[in-house]
Amino acid sequence: MNLETRLRTFSQLNNEELYQILRLRSEVFVVEQDCVFLDLDNKDQKCQHLSLYQGEELAAYCRIVPAGLSYQEVAIGRVVSAPAYRGKGLGRKVMEEAIAACEKLFGPVPIRLGAQTYALKFYQSLGFREEGEVYDEDGIEHIEMVYQFAR
């Protein structure tokens, strides 16, 4: 699979890229997961947006959130693979790219995320460790996890 990685600030996204990102997030987080919540949370404008494209199709995405916006630490959020591209390792690929982008943008700082508990083993396999208790977010169990770069 020949993937193109795009890392963009909000203002660098063109209309087509922004539409594809918001459509995919809505398709998965709102419709597929049957979760009514406001995805547009006024954080996107301050984030970096990491997208994996197969040709002109958005295959996977996540956003990189600067420290102090969602958590004290830098964060990775809205991690999603397009349904047509699942089972091809793109979740791992987008997360590996996101970890590398965090280090490039902010240095080897801790990275936090709020993981849906069904994906716990996936995030552990990338080096994230649980921190705190399981909590409910919009009807889905989550747990915070932190990645520490090796020193």
Rank of each mutant, 00 (worst) to 15 (best):
S81V: 15
C102R: 11
I99L: 10
G55V: 03
K46F: 14
A100V: 09
V134I: 14
L24E: 08
F29H: 06
L90A: 02
T117I: 15
L126D: 10
E97T: 07
G127F: 01
F10L: 06
K104N: 14
V109T: 14
D41F: 02
G114R: 13
L126V: 08
L13D: 10
K43M: 09
I76L: 03
F128H: 03
F149H: 14
V65E: 07
Q148D: 11
K93G: 00
M1D: 11
L40I: 15
C47F: 06
A84L: 10
K46I: 13
V134S: 02
F10A: 11
I21E: 03
L120A: 15
V109W: 04
F149S: 12
E17N: 05
Q12P: 03
I21S: 09
Q45Y: 02
I111N: 05
P83K: 12
D136W: 07
C62H: 04
Q45R: 13
K121Q: 15
R23P: 00
P108L: 08
V74P: 03
L38R: 14
G107Y: 02
L58T: 09
E141I: 01
G89A: 07
V30N: 06
E56T: 15
G77A: 14
A98R: 01
C102P: 07
L105R: 10
Y53S: 05
A84K: 12
V65Q: 07
F29Q: 01
R25F: 01
N15R: 14
A150W: 01
L69R: 10
L18T: 11
G91Q: 02
A75K: 08
R151D: 13
Q148G: 01
L105I: 15
Y123P: 01
Y53M: 08
G91S: 06
V146L: 11
G89C: 08
A119P: 05
L18G: 02
L120N: 13
S70W: 03
E27H: 14
D44G: 09
K88Y: 09
C35E: 07
G89Y: 04
Y71G: 00
Y19E: 00
E17A: 00
L126Y: 05
Q48W: 15
S51T: 14
R112F: 00
G139T: 13
L7V: 14
F37T: 10
S70F: 08
D44C: 10
S81R: 13
E27M: 08
R78S: 06
E57R: 15
E4C: 10
G127A: 05
I76T: 02
F10R: 03
F37C: 15
E144M: 05
I111Y: 06
F37P: 00
A101Y: 04
G89S: 09
Y53A: 06
K43S: 09
Q48I: 00
D39E: 15
L105F: 08
K43P: 00
P83R: 08
R92P: 00
Y135I: 08
V28H: 07
Y71W: 09
L38W: 05
G89M: 05
S81L: 03
F128I: 06
L69M: 12
F149Y: 13
L3P: 06
M1P: 12
M1T: 13
Y118L: 05
E16I: 13
E57G: 00
E17G: 08
E96P: 04
L58Y: 06
G91N: 03
Q12F: 01
N42G: 12
L18Y: 05
V146T: 13
L24T: 11
E103C: 10
E97P: 01
G114E: 10
K46W: 04
I64D: 09
F106S: 09
A84I: 01
Y53V: 12
M95A: 10
